[in-house]
Amino acid sequence: MAAFPSVEWFNAVRERYNSDETLHTGGGGPCEAKAALCIGDHIYLLEFEGFECAEIRQIDRNDIDHVDFCLDMPLYEWVDMVNNIQQHGEADLHHTLSTMDLELEEGLARAPGDDQYKMDLFYRYNQNFQDFFNASAGVPTTITVMD
């Protein structure tokens, strides 16, 4: 059982997402984007290449400038989202990336340097990223909540 958040957990999700095409609902098209997931004190790079999630690894805050966009929200929101997906098999309407981006005070997605072109990638590939997180429903998960 993998612990969220951790590289092991993301790799388990990645393996499930890459190996099951039925999880790819976003039109089945390729996705070329690098996103930084800011989760508590840790930052994970999530890289999509073509039809699959190519890489997950931890990065430093200095590396954020090199990604297309960041998904940044408080740790308890991440935990809430993962729990919601575990319970429902996919994010309900209040826990999708799109809805959280609208409802969180500071939003969820932002592009380094407020680059509009990169920011559009969040909307263009929103479903690919949502499908990825929804794939976590099939990954046995423990939550490691850090104070």
Partner: peptide, 13 residues
Amino acid sequence: FAHCLADHARHMT
């Protein structure tokens, strides 16, 4: 709406 959002974002790009 998920599809429309992604499509429209591409047009905006």
